[in-house]
């Protein structure tokens, strides 16, 4: 009895640093943001309790509506593309390829470098006058004239989607690859004996067995894409005319302008959306077996 008590105290000591760090630098800031969102908190102005006034302002602001729509559209377009491309990469990497090690490393590279740096590379690629995208499009005859990638709403949207898909499909591929490797080879051999062709084996064996991992990757990417910031900050600055102003960037703009109350309220809304999704994620990922 006494020894279990000692062990309990000891495990608390082992956990304490982790708990303190997470409480002070994550939970406290998030709670602080929620509290601030109910105040007028503007540089050089008196702090004043407003309750939900900031939220009322947000929902009557057309710029918020635009930002909200952009963010969800961005998620809705880029995440499915990332999953498809990631699945394709994972299927390839799961084969007995001659240069499998090198290919795996190549796929990891876009994921491993800072988004801010890849954002700058893509900014040059999309350059109207001498960027690679227009060079290829005109050379290959896809477009007669150079395209103003970052200068039009639609162009900026798809430029961001392509850059984000490039950056994050590798992550999806690695997660799905782990799922693929867990599928027993005998199932495929059995399928072949039963006369199922390549496509049938994919639909009947691979997809159903990969489904749990696919769901995890989908939710993970959705939550991550919702909070997109760095790529947009570098590539379009939210422009043109606020067409690509993600919710994170929208909130950041208000912080930058000194309006912490309003910025916090926007952040709180984003937090609530992301948190609800992560609760779903946690419920879906059957992980308790690791802990036991």
């Amino acid at each position: 009895m006494k020894s279990t008590f000692r062990e309990l105290r000891e495990s608390c000591n082992f956990l304490l640093p982790l708990i303190i760090f997470i409480l002070v630098f994550i939970i406290l800031p998030v709670l602080g943001t929620v509290v601030t969102s109910m105040f007028q908190d503007v540089t050089f102005l008196e702090r004043e309790f407003l309750f939900l006034e900031n939220y009322r302002r947000i929902f009557s602001d057309p710029a918020f509506g635009q930002s909200f729509r952009f963010t969800f559209l961005f998620v809705a377009v880029s995440v499915p593309l990332e999953i498809c491309l990631g699945l394709m990469f994972a299927l390839l990497l799961n084969e007995q390829l001659p240069f499998r090690g090198a290919l795996r490393a190549f796929v990891l590279i876009p994921w491993a470098i800072p988004a801010a740096i890849s954002g700058r590379i893509w900014e040059l690629i999309y350059n109207y006058h001498y960027g690679l995208a227009n060079f290829l499009f005109v050379k290959l005859g896809i477009s007669a004239e150079p395209i103003n990638w970052l200068g039009s709403g639609l162009g900026a949207f798809f430029s961001l989607v392509v850059s984000d898909v490039w950056k994050t499909s590798p992550f999806v591929a690695i997660i799905l690859l782990a799922g693929l490797q867990a599928i027993p080879r005998e199932l495929y051999e059995q399928g072949q004996v039963d006369g199922a062709n390549l496509l049938q084996r994919f639909y009947r064996i691979t997809l159903p067995l990969l489904k749990p991992v696919l769901v995890v990757a989908l939710l993970f990417r959705t939550i991550d894409a919702l909070r997109i910031f760095d790529l947009i900050y570098v590539l379009t600055h939210g422009g043109p005319g606020g067409a690509t102003n993600s919710l994170s960037l929208y909130a950041y703009r208000y912080y930058l302008g000194g309006d912490f109350g309003y910025g916090s309220a926007v952040s709180t809304i984003l937090f609530i959306v992301a948190f609800s999704l992560s609760v779903l994620y946690v419920k879906l990922s059957r992980f308790s077996s690791v802990v036991k």
């Binding site: 406290l28 800031p29 601030t36 994170s248 910025g263 984003l270 937090f271 994620y281």
Partner: peptide, 21 residues
């Protein structure tokens, strides 16, 4: 483990304003 997993998905923008202050 649940709690920590959920924490890792918090958007950074919901911390950064407070952290700045």
């Amino acid at each position: 483990m649940f709690f920590v997993l959920a924490v890792s998905m918090f958007p950074q923008v919901s911390m950064v304003g407070y952290l700045f202050k």
